[in-house]
C-alpha cells in the first residue's frame, strides 16, 4: 500500500520527462526560427558588411573547390562504372552518358558538394563563432554598437546562398568529366559521341534544379554553423559540441530537404 503514491509519482515523472523533452524541442525550434528570421531581415537593412561577405564567399566557395572537385570527379567516375556494369545486363550501355549527366546535375552534384561543404564550412563557422562567444567577442561587438547577428550571421548566410550554386556548377562539370574520363579511357566509349549524347540530353531544367538545391543547401550550412556557434557555451567542450552539432544537423537537413525538393520539383 505504501508503494502506491511513489508509484504514481514515478508514472507522473515519465509524463514530466516526455513533456520536458517536447517543450525543449519546441523552444529550440522557436529559437532557431527567430534566429533565422533575424539573420534574413538584417540582409535587407543597411549597413551591409560587403567586406565580410566577400571574405566568407572566398572561404565557403573558393577554398572548398579542391575537396568538392575531387569528390565530384570520383563520384562521376564511379557512377559511370556502375551504370555501365548494371546497364550491360540489359544491353543498355549506350545510355551511360545520359544517366551520368542526369544523376550528377540533379542529385549527386548538389548533395555531395553540400555534404562536403557542410563538413568543412559548418564546422569552421561553428568553431569560429563558438570561440567568439566563449571569449566574449560577441558581447564585445554589442558594446561597440554593432549588432552581432548583422555582422556575423547575415554575411555568412548571404555567402552560403551565393557561393554554393557556383561551387555546384563547377562540381557538375567536374563530375561529368569524371564519367567521361572513365567511359573513354576504361570502357572504350567514343569521346565525341559521349560528349554529344551528354550535351543533347541534359536540359537547363536539370541544371537549374540542382543549382536551386545548392542555394538552399548553402543557406542550411551557414545557418547551422552560425546557430550552433552563436549559442555555444561552456568553453572548449561547448565549442566542440557546437561544431559536431553543426555538421550533423546540416548534413541531415541537407539530405531531408533534398528529398523534399526533388519531390516538389520532379513529381508535379
Amino acid at each position: 500500500m505504501q508503494n502506491r503514491p511513489t508509484h504514481l509519482i514515478e508514472t507522473m515523472n515519465i509524463f514530466a520527462a516526455v513533456g520536458r523533452v517536447i517543450l525543449a524541442l519546441f523552444a529550440a525550434a522557436g529559437r532557431l526560427a527567430i534566429f533565422m528570421l533575424d539573420g534574413i531581415s538584417h540582409s535587407l537593412r543597411p549597413p551591409i558588411y560587403w567586406k565580410v561577405i566577400l571574405q566568407e564567399m572566398i572561404g565557403v566557395g573558393y577554398f572548398s573547390l579542391p575537396v568538392v572537385g575531387l569528390t565530384a570527379f570520383f563520384t562521376g567516375a564511379v557512377l559511370c562504372l556502375q551504370i555501365f556494369i548494371g546497364g550491360s545486363r540489359y544491353g543498355a550501355e549506350s545510355f551511360v552518358p545520359q544517366i551520368v549527366v542526369l544523376g550528377i546535375t540533379r542529385e549527386l552534384g548538389p548533395v555531395i558538394a553540400g555534404l562536403m561543404v557542410a563538413g568543412r564550412v559548418s564546422a569552421a563557422i561553428a568553431a569560429e563563432l563558438g570561440t567568439m562567444r566563449v571569449t566574449e567577442q560577441i558581447d564585445a561587438l554589442t558594446t561597440l554598437s554593432t549588432n552581432p547577428v548583422k555582422y556575423l550571421v547575415t554575411p555568412r548566410l548571404i555567402a552560403g546562398v551565393v557561393s554554393m550554386p557556383i561551387l555546384v556548377a563547377i562540381a557538375d562539370a567536374i563530375g561529368v568529366l569524371g564519367g567521361y574520363v572513365v567511359a573513354t579511357r576504361a570502357l572504350n566509349f567514343n569521346s565525341s559521341v559521349y560528349l554529344k549524347n551528354t550535351a543533347n540530353f541534359v536540359t537547363s531544367g536539370d541544371v537549374s534544379s540542382g543549382l536551386t538545391k545548392a542555394a538552399v543547401f548553402g543557406f542550411i550550412i551557414a545557418l547551422m554553423g552560425c546557430y550552433n556557434g552563436f549559442y555555444s557555451k561552456g568553453g572548449a567542450q561547448g565549442v566542440g559540441a557546437a561544431t559536431t552539432n553543426a555538421v550533423v544537423s546540416a548534413s541531415i537537413l541537407i539530405l531531408a530537404s533534398n528529398y523534399l525538393m526533388t519531390s516538389l520539383i520532379f513529381t508535379r
Partner: peptide, 30 residues
C-alpha cells in the same frame, strides 16, 4: 551603447582583425 566603453576580462579582442582595427572598430562600425 555609444555612451559606454568596456574592457573585457579576457580583453575579447577580435582575432580576425589587426590591433589597430580592433581599436578602431567601434569608430568605423558604430
Amino acid at each position: 551603447l555609444r555612451k559606454f566603453g568596456m574592457l573585457f576580462q579576457g580583453a575579447a579582442l577580435f582575432d580576425s582583425l589587426p590591433v589597430w582595427e580592433n581599436v578602431a572598430f567601434g569608430l568605423i562600425q558604430g
